[in-house]
Amino acid sequence: MESERSESRLLVVEVLNGNPVAFETLIGHYQKLVSHVVFRMVVNRSDREDICQEVFVKVYQNLAGFNFQCKLSTWIARIAYNACVNHLEKKRVPLLDDLYPEKNELEKYPSNAVTPECYAEEQDVSVRVRAEIEKMPARFRAVVTMYHLDEMSYEEIAEVTGMPLGTVKSYLFRGRRLLKDRLTEKYRLEDILK
């Protein structure tokens, strides 16, 4: 943890001294994190790469203001998250809907009906999980992704998104519950658990 901080401190100093190679290194270190957030929040494929670039441009422009009060990864993730929120707001994509308005209203987020032909193709539960994630509202997708792919703690996610800790937990739990329910609706138990 401490070595990670001192490593990123060195990197930031190098970038601020005008070393372009250092910034390329920084991009290399954090592009996975940024792509996780952006690709999960923005469904439109043609916009994704552009937003990722925009995020790193903002990182570069604002790096002098980074005061090491949090991890560099948390700061970069916050820029990525805010860039996505702004993009989705501009496109008028709903960021947040209730996943479970009522039990029998689950159809609001339609799940793909699995026909016998495509059943075989969709045997892979992981593929199915990924497909279901795309149907969730953007903020749920972001929280679930940061927790599972970027291994952020509840507290770090709260810091990135600006949500209260309880809201982060609630999004994570409800998101995973929805995914679990979707899987059990579509698959035989033995296929899921094999």
Partner: peptide
């Protein structure tokens, strides 16, 4: 079942940026 969901969520697939990003 939750373990299966988490396993699916942890798969780092489909997030590749173009080479030369």
């Amino acid at each position: 079942l939750y373990r299966a969901v988490c396993k699916g969520l942890e798969e780092d697939v489909g997030f590749e940026l173009a080479p030369g990003f």
